[in-house]
Design a protein around this nucleic acid. Sequence first.
DNA 1: CTTTGTGAAATTTTTCACAGCG
DNA 2: CGCTGTGAAAAATTTCACAAAG
Lengths: 222, 222
Amino acid sequence: MKRREETTPAIPEPTLARLHRYMTVLRRLRREGRRLVSSESLGQESGTPSALVRKDLTHLECYGQRGVGYETEALLDSLHQALGPEETRPLVIIGAGNLGVALSGYAGFDMQGYHIVGIFDADPTVVGIFHRGFVVRPMTDLPSVVKATGARIAVLAVPASHAQEAADQCVAAGLRGLLNFAPFRIQVPSAIEVRQVDLSEDLQLLNYQLKRSSSAVELGEK
Amino acid sequence: MKRREETTPAIPEPTLARLHRYMTVLRRLRREGRRLVSSESLGQESGTPSALVRKDLTHLECYGQRGVGYETEALLDSLHQALGPEETRPLVIIGAGNLGVALSGYAGFDMQGYHIVGIFDADPTVVGIFHRGFVVRPMTDLPSVVKATGARIAVLAVPASHAQEAADQCVAAGLRGLLNFAPFRIQVPSAIEVRQVDLSEDLQLLNYQLKRSSSAVELGEK
DNA sequence: CTTTGTGAAATTTTTCACAGCG
DNA sequence: CGCTGTGAAAAATTTCACAAAG
């Protein structure tokens, strides 16, 4: 599974995640009318040491001016070139249960360049129900909607027990990327990209930090 | 900022995240009536190499039987001891906008050991509205609810422009941990734990993978 | 002077491979 | 045998510190 020489080297994932954060911060700075940013201030706003910010930015063609910083606008352009354009990409949601409905109502996706074009469910008893401006559609409609909208990504918000089945239907419908919220590792053809997400993971990590810091206090932490 | 010798060494964060995933998988296996698990199968189910699973498990006192595997139940106990008990912990949500309401309707938190005890908003025009079984309460009610329920964690689902203000109110109300969904780095006293979350990050990463794999195809990937 | 860009060092995390136990 | 537990090696990521540029 090696890449060929000609292929642009992949940006490491931790770096990618940070680039995404820089983008979010930069968009706010742009709204605030800021023309220039230094690696130091970008770091502050996104919680990253400035040296690492600079190292991250070497993965894209952007040039800062020494002694000055980076142009907000130019930096955003480079980021869009590397991570994907700013125009919005269509997205479908599979599963009209609690989570699916929750996500369909989340406006944050829009702001980050994604817009939901449909919400689907296999259960006939929920099909047809309106949620936040969308009618829940049957899974049988998926292929035509994918074709019509050009959607390439599905958000899987179904129970673990149905995740594999739903994934198969997504693949059959021509979708290329799956964001799977079900705690179940789906199997897909190698051409399909999958990412596993766990909404409660951060809650768990926070709780662990909390647990540690309080026991440190009990032990008379200095 | 060094820890004292006596303090239990912190479990590294990537390991913690995986432990949490193991827990989720183990709960399902337990429901399915499985008594024993090998590091190999735990690895399969959670997408981790078995050697790493075993290494991770050395952070907790659990003993597998060589040639056999781990007892599902005992392993879960160890995990709960390390990460936090299985009983549910109270949680408040700050912000009754799109995201706050979305999260309040997400039943997955319940299953992972958290239950929402209230949803709050500073805006008087949304206070009093019912959402998924909760009335939105004014921020002024926060201290009393925290006291009454013993909640220690808040989920911040407010706009970036109000994140700092909301965080301050949470701290004043006696909350100890903040899960911040706003793309803004809040400042808090050192005794307070904060975690930054970005719901669209995974979408972005998925999109990048997709972009890479399609350009690889164009280049005639073997 | 300030801030970038970057090799080299340090640290963290993962993989390997195998001894050892039931 | 099969599967755990674990040093030792490898790989990935971050930090450091400083030369160089505007």
